[in-house]
């Protein structure tokens, strides 16, 4: 028995469907309250960036300024950190960020096909966001679920079925997410 069927119960319906209510980051927004809990933490800027990503799904320009002040860094340094990591972005993202794994084990199991199907269903290319602001599609590297290859994640939750039948699963799943 492989030790690996733990996650399969956390699929589609249960978790992420109701989880997402992203806030709109506007010009006048004060990001300090979000940043505050991490200000005293050494190296806390990464955690603060995570908090912003959770709330807004991107790092708004004004938040970069607030971060710089809170952590006594230059804005350039803050941007340097924010742009280094692939799970941080300063570009607006959709409510659902879908990432398709392209590392070797998934690549061998037709990750390209998963991406093409998602592109077709959503009408966008990898790296883009749908006009209604619902979905962002991108490539990612191994998410540590290779036994279920090909793997894609929605807001970081892996979609893994014992038999990953993505061609039937994806349209149904997107339909469900659209209704949210």
């Amino acid at each position: 028995m492989p030790f690996d069927h733990f996650l399969t119960r956390r699929i589609l319906k249960s978790t992420y469907v109701c989880e997402v209510k992203i806030l709109a980051g506007e010009a006048g927004t004060d990001y300090k309250p979000l940043i505050e809990p991490y200000r005293q933490m050494r190296g806390g800027i990464i955690e603060a960036l995570h908090a912003l990503m959770r709330a807004y799904h991107f790092i708004p320009p004004k938040a970069l300024k607030d971060l710089a002040k809170a952590f006594r860094m230059t804005e350039a340094e803050v941007y340097g950190v924010a742009s280094f990591y692939s799970y941080f972005t300063t570009k607006e993202q959709g409510a659902y960020v879908i990432r398709v794994c392209r590392s070797a084990p998934c690549h061998l199991e037709n990750a390209q096909g998963v991406m093409e199907l998602l592109e077709k269903e959503l009408g966008i290319h990898a790296g883009q966001t749908t006009e209604d602001g619902k979905f962002t599609l991108e490539w990612t590297e191994c998410v540590g679920q290779c036994a279920h290859a090909p793997v894609y994640t929605i807001n970081r939750e892996p979609v893994t079925e014992p038999k990953n039948v993505f061609s039937e699963q994806i349209p149904l799943l997107l339909e469900q997410l659209r209704q949210n």
Partner: peptide, 20 residues
């Protein structure tokens, strides 16, 4: 936050310190 190189121990340390 999504960087393979952060598995390397000194890069990991930099990351905990809040750097690239």
């Amino acid at each position: 936050a999504g960087a393979y190189v952060c598995g390397e121990e000194s890069a990991l340390i930099e990351s905990i310190e809040g750097h690239r």
